[in-house]
Design a protein around this nucleic acid. Structure first.
Length: 446
DNA sequence: CTCTGATCATGT
DNA sequence: ACATGATCAGAG
């Protein structure tokens, strides 16, 4: 077996792996076996066929003397030209009986997985695994960019679940980067836990898929086109934001602003982030000429794991005098017809609130004639209410059949938005788009 | 839980 | 001083 005395030596040798297929290293025909039965086969082929050492299941790291663990994992090419991790990266299994006595800083998890040598191959659906190409590799260090503090917190969440005797209620949605992923043969493959008689699914620590996509994109891949001339807005925006995919709002904020919020998280945190990494809406045309062709607006939405919005999408305050215009000639009709929303999705849930949601994806929303017509009904309802000076006629939520646009208060404390609707030309009321409708539009993209 | 009126930090 | 984009939080 080859022995590497320094990380540099190892990396230099590893350069030779680029461009090879697994077939090139498959000395004893592991690929002939049924791969589904041996999911680790690709890793074993690299260990034996490329690095020349025999299989190893101990809690010691693969490149023990360098404190490095080898991971071989796949990525996929998306339709829009970007790349994503194919799967979560499974680390060591969780031992429920020992985790309750473990401190993260001295844990097996950290000991074995803090530094990883990640070998990335390109997964292609129609190819045999033997023909997958190893495209690149990277050194990953949990400690970089402050990720380790979030991973430590995730570890504590998992540990706490076991401590209170709820190992059977673990799920991947509880945590941010480090998940407790199923590791048994199926959900019936259970084991005991220390503080409850209830049997629990076997699980392993895993770096989540979205986090791995961020890790993947944080390295510049040699085979990717450089000197990027972006052809579409999506490509441009993806290029600006993709390295943040899988990260929490706070981590992204800290990375780009070099400071953080300890106590109160601003409600406009996401907009501050998108303003900084993509640009403010008014600056977009000068950032990239593509933006001048249409009216692009960056929106941020919290969603659940199915991309269902946790909130409605809000707009600027209504101005009474704007409603003198008929719908056909109105600013609002013109706006909805022309606008393209670039939507940044942040995944959260009832436990994972603002500040800790995870940047997940980007979508594009435009409105067709049918949508615009429905917006028009809401507009006309406002118009009618103003004409008759009757706030009871306003388009409150769910008062119009098939309503997708509604009004909501929007102001500061004690504004009494509805009762004082007629008091000021710029009202304390705004439009909001219904969640079901946003969900439908999000599902239509890509 | 979801719904919806109310409120917030920031930028200008 | 207040509009903006967005989230909060009590009601049901």
């Amino acid at each position: 077996m080859k022995k590497f005395n320094t990380i540099d030596e190892l990396l230099k040798y590893t350069e030779n792996i680029k461009g090879h297929t697994f077939r090139d290293f498959d000395k004893d025909g592991k690929l002939e076996e049924n791969l589904k039965r041996n999911k680790g086969a690709l890793g074993q082929i690299i260990e034996e066929g490329f690095y020349g050492y025999s299989l190893n299941n101990s809690a010691k790291a693969d490149f023990d003397n360098l404190g490095l663990e080898l991971k071989v994992t796949g990525f996929i090419r998306n339709k829009n030209g970007t790349i994503s991790a194919k799967e979560r990266l499974v680390l060591s299994k969780i031992d429920y009986n020992s985790i309750v006595n473990e401190e993260f800083d001295f844990s097996k998890l950290l000991f074995k997985n803090r530094k990883l040598l990640i070998i990335w191959y390109e997964y292609e659906k129609d190819k045999s695994p033997a023909d997958f190409v190893v495209q690149d590799f990277q050194l990953y260090d949990m400690d970089e960019q402050g990720d380790i503090t979030i991973i430590k917190n995730d570890f504590e969440i998992i540990k706490q679940k076991v401590v209170i005797g709820e190992a059977h209620e673990l799920s991947e949605g509880l945590t941010s980067y480090l998940g407790a992923c199923p590791k048994g043969i199926n959900s019936l493959d259970v084991t005991n836990q220390p503080n409850s008689p209830e049997m629990a699914m076997r699980r392993a620590y895993a770096l989540k898929n979205s986090y791995m996509t961020g890790v993947l994109r944080s390295v510049k891949f040699a085979f990717e086109a450089d000197g990027a001339q972006y052809k579409t807005i999506e490509e441009y925006v993806f290029a600006q934001v993709s390295k943040f995919i899988g990260k929490t709002q706070s981590a992204i904020y800290e990375e780009i602003f070099k400071n953080k919020y300890e106590e109160r998280i601003p409600k406009n945190l996401n907009k501050m982030i998108s303003d900084k990494i993509i640009g403010k809406d008014v600056e977009l045309p000068e950032k990239n000429p593509l933006f001048s062709k249409t009216n692009y607006v960056i929106k941020n939405i919290p969603v659940d794991k199915h991309n269902y919005p946790l909130e409605r999408m809000s707009f600027r305050n209504l101005v009474l005098s704007e409603f003198e215009e008929e719908w056909e000639n109105s600013r609002w009709k013109n706006y909805f017809e022309e606008v393209t929303f670039i939507v940044l999705l942040y995944e959260g849930n009832s436990k994972i609130k603002n500040g800790f949601r995870i940047f997940k994806d980007i979508k594009k929303i435009t409105f067709n004639a049918e949508d615009v017509e429905l917006f028009g009904r809401t507009y006309n309802t406002v118009r009618e209410a103003i004409k008759t000076r009757d706030i009871s006629k306003l388009p409150y939520p769910k008062v119009i059949n098939g309503q997708i646009l509604e009004i909501a208060p929007k102001g500061q404390k004690n504004d009494d938005a509805y009762n004082r609707f007629f008091d000021r030309d710029v009202t304390k009321v705004c439009f909001m788009i219904d969640k079901d409708f946003i969900f439908k539009k999000l599902s239509e993209d890509k």
